[in-house]
Amino acid sequence: MNSKLLTAVLGLTIAGLGAGAASAQTLGTVKERGQLRCGVNTGLPGFASQNDKGEWQGLDVDYCKAVAAAVFGDPSKVQYSPLSAVQRFPALQNNEIDMLARNTTWTMDRDTTLGLAFAGVNYYDGQGFMVKKDLGVNSALELSGATVCVQSGTTTELNLADYFRTNKMDYNPVVIEAQSDVNSAYDSGRCDVLTTDASGLAASRLELKNPDDNVILPEIISKEPLGPAVRQGDDQWFNVVKWTHYALLDAEELGVTKDNVEEMKSSDNPEIRRLLGQDKDFGASIGLSKDWAVNIIKAVGNYGEIFERNIGVDTPLKIQRGQNALWTKGGIQYGMPIR
């Protein structure tokens, strides 16, 4: 009786620990499950947030939808996991999610020692500061002695320490885990300064009691290339996410949009024909169907459409394309050729 129990417990533990090792077949597992598990922010307007109907929307959310469309032809087959900054990497490492699209900065440390692989940059960002207007501060260099609210476990926290130390300034950090609590601490006057990525500042500002009483300072103190990440060691799945990103960029460059994608199938342009799977079956080479890119664009549009819909100048965030314009228009977004 006892030995039977012991065998059962051992068996269960072996099964549990063994599952951690088998991570190589993500695409097959996702197809079998019929759903993509995507890690997103717990709530960052423009990138990942729930609307009043409880539907997820935002730039990162559209990347989840794009990958689901590429795999299933259906952008709704996504199960979203809202994750805090501290939770995000363990969730991906432990196989709880298939991909992480959570405004996460691509750094060498994360790319190497955390076992992650970044599939591209869907938003080039940089860290900035927001202060109350009535302080009369015009530059981040005047912030010596201030109390600064920051989210724990982010690159932001590290840049902040570096910036104040290199400029020989003092500050009081107030370090809180959830960005929403960081925002409310700033709003209630616990801190003088709120710091996060510039896009995050624009989003957080909208949630303050009086957005117009706050200004974003001109200094950008870091490079924050944000992008989707997957686990290392599964090249097929890495390619699916990476080429979904490039397909979105190439579609914008070639003028393929959500509305005209069907007509574009009969275009004479060989680049468009390759993207839309008309000449050669590129989908098969990454384990997807021939019309994978068509499905992506039908579901979420091209990169430009995603940008304008979620964070562009016509949205409350009013963010210019800037560095995130295509390379042909003065930016640095550059889709690798599909051929």
Partner: peptide, 9 residues
């Protein structure tokens, strides 16, 4: 510890 955990992985 959780900051250390997240920064170092």
């Amino acid at each position: 510890g959780s900051t250390v955990l997240n920064q170092s992985g």
